[in-house]
Simulated scan of single mutants.
Amino acid sequence: MARTTYQELLDAGVHFGHLTRKWDPKMAKYIFMERNGIHIIDLNKTLIKLEEAASAIKQVVKSGRKVLFVATKKQAKDIVAAQAKTVNMPFVTERWLGGMLTNFATVRKSIKKMANIDKMTKDGTYSVLSKKEKLMIQRERIKLENLLGGIADLNRLPAALFIIDVKKEHIAVSEALKLNIPTFAMVDTNSDPTNIDFPIPSNDDATKSISLITEIIGKAIQEGLEERKRDKEEEAEREAAAAKARIDSGEEPEATAEETKTDTDASGKRPRKKAEAEIATEADNTPDGE
């Protein structure tokens, strides 16, 4: 089933591009026509590219990895933050800090600092500070929350980026390119789609357009999460059924990894059967007459 229809894209204004004088020639293949000095995006191609992006991002999430949502423009930040929270994915909606990906270790230190401030408020350390120190810490905490709150739970580099307006977020695109991180993005007629792995030709300025595309990507991510959960449950059921079948047939259960790590039993001695096997091997290898 299609994730959206031509009519839904039309109603959301996804087809409206920028003024013809502001266009990027590399977007020519996604442009349908010009009307009143504005480029019109070919929605048939948008449908194809949107389906490709949604299917690919679903597989990324199904593998158990994270997708980082990036949108710092005013009309997109609230929409993107809400959708990212819905599917429990990290997001950046205030300002992209240079080196957020390429210098991720330093960014993690700042996130840890934010966690330490929270710890101070819980263990009572914060209460013994002076009024001035408290005020300084509060201001720093608010600043860190605004910049890094959306990626506080991101312990390693994301597996992919979903970006609104690649022209504005060119630093994020550049860092992802350096680290070979796949990018999914809404690309308008004034942007270069060649550096994006999964470009979605669409209007990245209108709230309705951003909301529709982001929602479709969010649903694809949700599908990936649900399929991953279902696969894990089915795998657990298969393992339980196999174990039950072995028990019913009278077979000894297979040794666990923990049991095979050591050759000694609980008393610190080698298991009887293993010791006997080793003695028998030594006897076979002993030359005659010894």
Rank of each mutant, 00 (worst) to 15 (best):
K109P: 00
W23Y: 13
E52D: 14
L68H: 10
I142E: 15
A115F: 07
M114C: 04
L68W: 06
A28S: 11
I142C: 08
V67Y: 05
T93G: 11
I111L: 08
K49C: 08
K134A: 06
K77A: 09
N155I: 12
V92Q: 11
S63W: 02
L101V: 00
R65M: 00
R141E: 11
G149S: 06
L101F: 05
K62T: 07
K66E: 15
I79P: 00
Q83Y: 04
D42H: 11
A84W: 06
K112C: 02
K85A: 03
I57M: 09
S127G: 11
L147G: 04
A71E: 06
I111G: 01
V67D: 08
E140W: 09
F91L: 03
Y126D: 07
R35T: 08
E34W: 01
F91M: 05
T46K: 13
N103P: 01
S130R: 12
K131G: 03
G149R: 04
T72Y: 00
S63Y: 01
R35P: 03
R141T: 04
S130I: 04
E52P: 05
A159K: 08
K122L: 13
K73G: 00
K26S: 12
L101C: 03
G99L: 10
I31E: 11
K49Q: 13
R156D: 13
V61T: 14
A159V: 01
A152Q: 07
T125L: 08
V80L: 13
E145F: 05
G64F: 10
K45M: 11
M100F: 08
L135F: 11
L47Q: 13
I117S: 03
D24P: 02
A28E: 09
L147N: 09
N88K: 12
K49S: 09
W23P: 00
